[in-house]
Protein backbone atom coordinates (compact mmCIF):
# COMPACT_ATOMS: atom_id res chain seq x y z
CA UNK A 1 0.00 0.00 0.00
CA UNK A 2 3.00 2.28 -0.53
CA UNK A 3 1.05 3.87 -3.36
CA UNK A 4 -1.25 5.47 -0.79
CA UNK A 5 1.60 7.53 0.70
CA UNK A 6 0.93 10.05 -2.06
CA UNK A 7 -2.46 10.82 -0.50
CA UNK A 8 -1.12 11.72 2.94
CA UNK A 9 -1.47 15.48 2.24
CA UNK A 10 -5.18 14.99 1.44
CA UNK A 11 -6.24 12.81 4.37
CA UNK A 12 -6.63 14.05 7.96
CA UNK A 13 -6.11 10.88 9.96
CA UNK A 14 -3.77 9.08 7.62
CA UNK A 15 -2.94 6.25 10.05
CA UNK A 16 -6.62 5.47 10.53
CA UNK A 17 -7.04 5.51 6.76
CA UNK A 18 -4.24 2.97 6.26
CA UNK A 19 -5.54 0.78 9.08
CA UNK A 20 -9.04 0.76 7.59
CA UNK A 21 -7.65 -0.24 4.19
CA UNK A 22 -6.17 -3.37 5.82
CA UNK A 23 -9.52 -4.57 7.19
CA UNK A 24 -11.93 -6.73 5.19
CA UNK A 25 -15.28 -5.20 4.27
CA UNK A 26 -18.61 -6.11 5.82
CA UNK A 27 -20.98 -8.00 3.52
CA UNK A 28 -23.61 -5.60 2.20
CA UNK A 29 -26.65 -6.06 -0.04
CA UNK A 30 -29.02 -3.56 -1.62
CA UNK A 31 -32.69 -4.53 -1.45
CA UNK A 32 -34.19 -4.43 -4.95
CA UNK A 33 -37.50 -2.56 -4.86
CA UNK A 34 -38.48 -3.99 -8.27
CA UNK A 35 -38.90 -7.40 -6.63
CA UNK A 36 -39.60 -6.79 -2.96
CA UNK A 37 -39.63 -4.28 -0.11
CA UNK A 38 -37.17 -3.88 2.75
CA UNK A 39 -39.72 -5.28 5.25
CA UNK A 40 -40.18 -8.52 3.37
CA UNK A 41 -36.45 -8.82 2.76
CA UNK A 42 -35.92 -8.55 6.52
CA UNK A 43 -38.56 -11.22 7.14
CA UNK A 44 -36.79 -13.56 4.73
CA UNK A 45 -33.47 -12.95 6.52
CA UNK A 46 -35.12 -13.52 9.90
CA UNK A 47 -36.58 -16.80 8.64
CA UNK A 48 -33.14 -17.86 7.41
CA UNK A 49 -31.53 -16.90 10.73
CA UNK A 50 -29.19 -14.37 9.09
CA UNK A 51 -28.50 -11.30 11.20
CA UNK A 52 -28.36 -7.84 9.65
CA UNK A 53 -28.18 -4.14 10.37
CA UNK A 54 -29.46 -1.26 8.33
CA UNK A 55 -27.04 1.61 7.65
CA UNK A 56 -28.85 4.85 8.54
CA UNK A 57 -27.76 6.78 5.49
CA UNK A 58 -29.34 4.43 2.95
CA UNK A 59 -32.39 2.40 4.09
CA UNK A 60 -32.31 0.09 1.06
CA UNK A 61 -28.98 -1.37 2.24
CA UNK A 62 -28.51 -4.22 4.71
CA UNK A 63 -25.22 -5.28 6.27
CA UNK A 64 -25.48 -9.06 6.53
CA UNK A 65 -23.89 -11.38 9.06
CA UNK A 66 -22.88 -13.91 6.44
CA UNK A 67 -19.89 -14.38 4.16
CA UNK A 68 -22.10 -15.74 1.40
CA UNK A 69 -24.89 -13.27 0.65
CA UNK A 70 -25.27 -14.94 -2.75
CA UNK A 71 -26.23 -18.26 -1.17
CA UNK A 72 -29.58 -16.98 0.08
CA UNK A 73 -33.16 -17.29 -1.17
CA UNK A 74 -33.37 -13.53 -1.53
CA UNK A 75 -30.35 -13.49 -3.80
CA UNK A 76 -31.72 -16.28 -6.00
CA UNK A 77 -35.01 -14.42 -6.30
CA UNK A 78 -33.35 -11.08 -7.08
CA UNK A 79 -34.66 -9.52 -3.87
CA UNK A 80 -31.20 -8.21 -3.11
CA UNK A 81 -27.88 -7.64 -4.78
CA UNK A 82 -24.50 -7.92 -3.10
CA UNK A 83 -22.53 -4.72 -3.58
CA UNK A 84 -20.14 -2.46 -1.76
CA UNK A 85 -21.97 -0.01 0.49
CA UNK A 86 -20.41 3.00 -1.29
CA UNK A 87 -21.58 1.77 -4.68
CA UNK A 88 -25.09 2.76 -3.56
CA UNK A 89 -24.01 6.41 -3.48
CA UNK A 90 -24.28 7.59 -7.11
CA UNK A 91 -27.76 6.39 -8.19
CA UNK A 92 -29.69 8.45 -5.59
CA UNK A 93 -27.42 11.43 -6.36
CA UNK A 94 -28.44 11.17 -10.02
CA UNK A 95 -32.03 10.88 -8.70
CA UNK A 96 -33.73 9.50 -11.84
CA UNK A 97 -37.54 9.69 -12.01
CA UNK A 98 -39.99 7.14 -13.38
CA UNK A 99 -40.48 7.59 -17.12
CA UNK A 100 -37.21 9.41 -17.76
CA UNK A 101 -34.47 8.59 -20.26
CA UNK A 102 -31.37 7.66 -18.35
CA UNK A 103 -27.94 6.55 -19.51
CA UNK A 104 -25.58 4.37 -17.50
CA UNK A 105 -22.53 5.02 -19.68
CA UNK A 106 -20.26 2.41 -18.06
CA UNK A 107 -22.99 0.14 -16.73
CA UNK A 108 -21.41 -3.28 -16.13
CA UNK A 109 -21.62 -5.36 -14.04
CA UNK A 110 -24.90 -3.74 -13.04
CA UNK A 111 -25.08 -2.77 -9.37
CA UNK A 112 -25.59 0.92 -10.14
CA UNK A 113 -27.64 0.35 -13.30
CA UNK A 114 -29.92 -1.95 -11.29
CA UNK A 115 -30.20 0.71 -8.59
CA UNK A 116 -31.11 3.33 -11.22
CA UNK A 117 -33.85 1.06 -12.63
CA UNK A 118 -35.29 0.57 -9.15
CA UNK A 119 -35.34 4.34 -8.54
CA UNK A 120 -37.12 4.72 -11.91
CA UNK A 121 -39.80 2.25 -10.73
CA UNK A 122 -38.66 0.15 -13.69
CA UNK A 123 -40.31 2.57 -16.11
CA UNK A 124 -38.91 4.92 -18.75
CA UNK A 125 -35.79 3.97 -20.66
CA UNK A 126 -32.52 3.06 -19.01
CA UNK A 127 -29.77 2.66 -21.58
CA UNK A 128 -27.21 0.46 -19.86
CA UNK A 129 -24.00 0.48 -21.85
CA UNK A 130 -20.61 -1.11 -21.49
CA UNK A 131 -17.67 -1.25 -23.83
CA UNK A 132 -16.51 -4.69 -22.70
CA UNK A 133 -18.38 -7.58 -24.28
CA UNK A 134 -17.27 -9.87 -21.45
CA UNK A 135 -18.71 -7.56 -18.81
CA UNK A 136 -21.85 -7.08 -20.88
CA UNK A 137 -23.05 -10.62 -20.28
CA UNK A 138 -22.69 -10.02 -16.53
CA UNK A 139 -24.66 -6.79 -16.92
CA UNK A 140 -27.50 -8.52 -18.75
CA UNK A 141 -27.50 -11.47 -16.37
CA UNK A 142 -27.64 -9.23 -13.30
CA UNK A 143 -30.31 -6.86 -14.64
CA UNK A 144 -32.50 -9.82 -15.59
CA UNK A 145 -32.11 -11.45 -12.19
CA UNK A 146 -33.15 -8.14 -10.64
CA UNK A 147 -36.26 -8.21 -12.85
CA UNK A 148 -35.35 -4.99 -14.69
CA UNK A 149 -37.56 -4.56 -17.76
CA UNK A 150 -36.86 -0.89 -18.60
CA UNK A 151 -33.26 -1.38 -19.73
CA UNK A 152 -31.88 -1.29 -23.27
CA UNK A 153 -28.41 -2.81 -23.20
CA UNK A 154 -25.72 -1.58 -25.60
CA UNK A 155 -22.11 -2.54 -26.26
CA UNK A 156 -20.45 0.71 -27.37
CA UNK A 157 -17.49 2.86 -26.49
CA UNK A 158 -19.06 5.56 -24.34
CA UNK A 159 -16.58 8.14 -25.70
CA UNK A 160 -18.34 8.25 -29.06
CA UNK A 161 -21.72 6.85 -28.05
CA UNK A 162 -24.33 7.20 -30.78
CA UNK A 163 -27.99 7.98 -30.04
CA UNK A 164 -28.90 6.67 -33.49
CA UNK A 165 -30.67 3.42 -32.46
CA UNK A 166 -33.02 5.14 -30.04
CA UNK A 167 -35.04 7.71 -31.95
CA UNK A 168 -34.41 10.37 -29.31
CA UNK A 169 -31.62 12.94 -29.12
CA UNK A 170 -30.74 13.38 -25.47
CA UNK A 171 -30.98 11.79 -22.05
CA UNK A 172 -32.53 13.42 -19.01
CA UNK A 173 -29.79 12.07 -16.75
CA UNK A 174 -26.51 10.26 -17.16
CA UNK A 175 -24.33 8.32 -14.77
CA UNK A 176 -20.62 8.05 -15.55
CA UNK A 177 -19.33 5.49 -13.07
CA UNK A 178 -16.00 5.57 -14.79
CA UNK A 179 -13.46 2.83 -15.35
CA UNK A 180 -10.69 3.70 -12.88
CA UNK A 181 -7.67 2.44 -10.98
CA UNK A 182 -10.02 1.09 -8.27
CA UNK A 183 -7.78 2.10 -5.37
CA UNK A 184 -10.84 2.40 -3.14
CA UNK A 185 -11.71 -1.28 -3.57
CA UNK A 186 -8.52 -2.38 -1.75
CA UNK A 187 -10.53 -3.82 1.14
CA UNK A 188 -12.43 -6.10 -1.23
CA UNK A 189 -9.58 -6.77 -3.68
CA UNK A 190 -6.25 -6.82 -1.84
CA UNK A 191 -4.47 -6.99 -5.21
CA UNK A 192 -6.18 -3.83 -6.49
CA UNK A 193 -2.87 -1.95 -6.56
CA UNK A 194 -0.79 -4.64 -8.27
CA UNK A 195 -0.87 -2.96 -11.68
CA UNK A 196 -0.86 0.60 -10.40
CA UNK A 197 1.41 3.14 -12.11
CA UNK A 198 1.39 6.89 -12.73
CA UNK A 199 1.37 6.09 -16.44
CA UNK A 200 -1.89 4.16 -15.99
CA UNK A 201 -3.42 7.13 -14.17
CA UNK A 202 -2.52 9.34 -17.10
CA UNK A 203 -4.08 6.98 -19.64
CA UNK A 204 -7.25 6.26 -17.69
CA UNK A 205 -7.68 9.95 -16.90
CA UNK A 206 -7.75 10.79 -20.62
CA UNK A 207 -10.44 8.13 -21.15
CA UNK A 208 -12.46 9.43 -18.18
CA UNK A 209 -12.35 13.00 -19.57
CA UNK A 210 -13.64 11.81 -22.97
CA UNK A 211 -16.45 9.75 -21.45
CA UNK A 212 -17.58 12.59 -19.20
CA UNK A 213 -17.51 15.04 -22.13
CA UNK A 214 -19.70 12.72 -24.19
CA UNK A 215 -22.04 12.28 -21.22
CA UNK A 216 -22.54 16.04 -20.91
CA UNK A 217 -23.13 16.35 -24.67
CA UNK A 218 -25.69 13.51 -24.61
CA UNK A 219 -27.69 15.01 -21.71
CA UNK A 220 -30.31 17.73 -22.17
CA UNK A 221 -29.82 21.30 -20.98
CA UNK A 222 -30.88 21.41 -17.34
CA UNK A 223 -30.30 17.67 -17.04
CA UNK A 224 -28.00 15.98 -14.57
CA UNK A 225 -24.74 14.09 -14.97
CA UNK A 226 -23.15 12.26 -12.06
CA UNK A 227 -19.47 11.36 -12.20
CA UNK A 228 -18.16 8.72 -9.82
CA UNK A 229 -15.13 6.49 -9.33
CA UNK A 230 -13.95 4.06 -6.69
CA UNK A 231 -10.52 5.65 -6.50
CA UNK A 232 -8.67 8.32 -4.56
CA UNK A 233 -6.35 9.72 -7.27
CA UNK A 234 -7.19 13.38 -7.98
CA UNK A 235 -5.91 12.76 -11.52
CA UNK A 236 -9.00 10.56 -12.01
CA UNK A 237 -11.41 12.71 -10.04
CA UNK A 238 -11.08 16.48 -9.60
CA UNK A 239 -8.75 16.82 -12.61
CA UNK A 240 -11.40 15.15 -14.80
CA UNK A 241 -14.09 17.53 -13.50
CA UNK A 242 -11.77 20.49 -14.05
CA UNK A 243 -11.21 19.37 -17.64
CA UNK A 244 -14.92 18.98 -18.48
CA UNK A 245 -15.70 22.39 -16.99
CA UNK A 246 -13.33 23.82 -19.59
CA UNK A 247 -14.57 21.88 -22.60
CA UNK A 248 -18.34 21.57 -22.00
CA UNK A 249 -21.18 23.81 -20.81
CA UNK A 250 -21.94 22.54 -17.34
CA UNK A 251 -21.40 23.32 -13.68
CA UNK A 252 -20.72 21.32 -10.56
CA UNK A 253 -23.53 21.45 -8.00
CA UNK A 254 -23.77 20.53 -4.34
CA UNK A 255 -25.73 17.50 -3.10
CA UNK A 256 -26.54 15.89 0.22
CA UNK A 257 -24.73 12.78 1.32
CA UNK A 258 -25.50 11.44 4.79
CA UNK A 259 -22.15 9.68 5.07
CA UNK A 260 -19.03 11.22 6.58
CA UNK A 261 -16.94 12.61 3.73
CA UNK A 262 -14.38 15.21 2.69
CA UNK A 263 -14.89 17.86 0.01
CA UNK A 264 -13.20 17.55 -3.38
CA UNK A 265 -9.55 18.63 -3.44
CA UNK A 266 -8.99 22.00 -5.09
CA UNK A 267 -5.25 21.50 -5.38
CA UNK A 268 -2.99 18.56 -6.15
CA UNK A 269 0.76 18.45 -6.66
CA UNK A 270 1.02 22.14 -7.49
CA UNK A 271 -1.98 22.15 -9.81
CA UNK A 272 -5.04 24.19 -8.86
CA UNK A 273 -8.50 23.07 -9.97
CA UNK A 274 -11.69 25.05 -10.47
CA UNK A 275 -12.86 25.96 -6.93
CA UNK A 276 -16.27 24.34 -7.57
CA UNK A 277 -14.70 20.86 -7.44
CA UNK A 278 -15.07 21.32 -3.65
CA UNK A 279 -18.73 20.34 -4.13
CA UNK A 280 -17.62 16.81 -5.02
CA UNK A 281 -17.43 14.27 -2.17
CA UNK A 282 -14.55 12.05 -1.15
CA UNK A 283 -15.46 9.05 0.99
CA UNK A 284 -12.52 7.35 2.70
CA UNK A 285 -12.58 3.83 4.20
CA UNK A 286 -11.98 5.05 7.78
CA UNK A 287 -14.88 7.52 7.62
CA UNK A 288 -17.76 5.02 7.65
CA UNK A 289 -16.08 1.60 7.57
CA UNK A 290 -16.71 1.26 3.82
CA UNK A 291 -14.69 1.16 0.61
CA UNK A 292 -13.38 4.40 -0.91
CA UNK A 293 -15.45 6.47 -3.31
CA UNK A 294 -15.63 9.74 -5.20
CA UNK A 295 -18.82 11.37 -6.47
CA UNK A 296 -19.70 14.66 -8.17
CA UNK A 297 -22.98 16.04 -9.52
CA UNK A 298 -23.07 18.25 -12.61
CA UNK A 299 -25.86 20.29 -14.13
CA UNK A 300 -25.80 20.62 -17.90
CA UNK A 301 -26.05 24.20 -19.23
CA UNK A 302 -27.81 25.63 -22.30
Amino acid sequence: MDVFERYEPLIDDFEAFLAACERPLPSVVRVNAIKTGVERAREALDAAGIGYEQPEWQPSLLRLETDRPGATWGSFSGWWYGQEEVSAIPAPVLDPRPGERVWAACGAPGSKAGHLAALMDDSGTLVANDRSLGRLSALRFNLERLGVTCAAVTNRDARNFSMQPFGFEVFDRTLVDAPCSCEGTIRKNPDALDDWSEGYLKNVSAIQCSILERAVQATRAGGTVVYSTCTFAPEENEAVLDSVLETETCRIVDFDLALDHDPGATEWRGEAFDPSVREAKRVYPHHNDTGGFFCAKLEVGE
Binding site: D122, R140, T149, A151, A152, T154, N155
Partner: peptide, 19 residues
Amino acid sequence: WAFAGDLSSPIAIEGLGLT
Protein backbone atom coordinates in the same frame (compact mmCIF):
# COMPACT_ATOMS: atom_id res chain seq x y z
CA TRP B 1 -38.30 -10.09 -24.82
CA ALA B 2 -40.60 -7.87 -22.75
CA PHE B 3 -39.65 -4.20 -22.55
CA ALA B 4 -41.34 -1.69 -20.23
CA GLY B 5 -41.82 0.99 -22.84
CA ASP B 6 -41.40 1.40 -26.55
CA LEU B 7 -38.66 2.18 -29.05
CA SER B 8 -38.69 2.29 -32.83
CA SER B 9 -38.55 -1.16 -34.45
CA PRO B 10 -36.24 -2.70 -35.57
CA ILE B 11 -33.42 -1.86 -33.17
CA ALA B 12 -29.95 -3.41 -33.30
CA ILE B 13 -28.76 -3.47 -29.68
CA GLU B 14 -27.68 -6.15 -27.22
CA GLY B 15 -30.59 -6.37 -24.84
CA LEU B 16 -34.11 -4.97 -24.50
CA GLY B 17 -35.92 -5.57 -21.24
CA LEU B 18 -36.22 -9.16 -20.07
CA THR B 19 -35.92 -12.40 -22.06
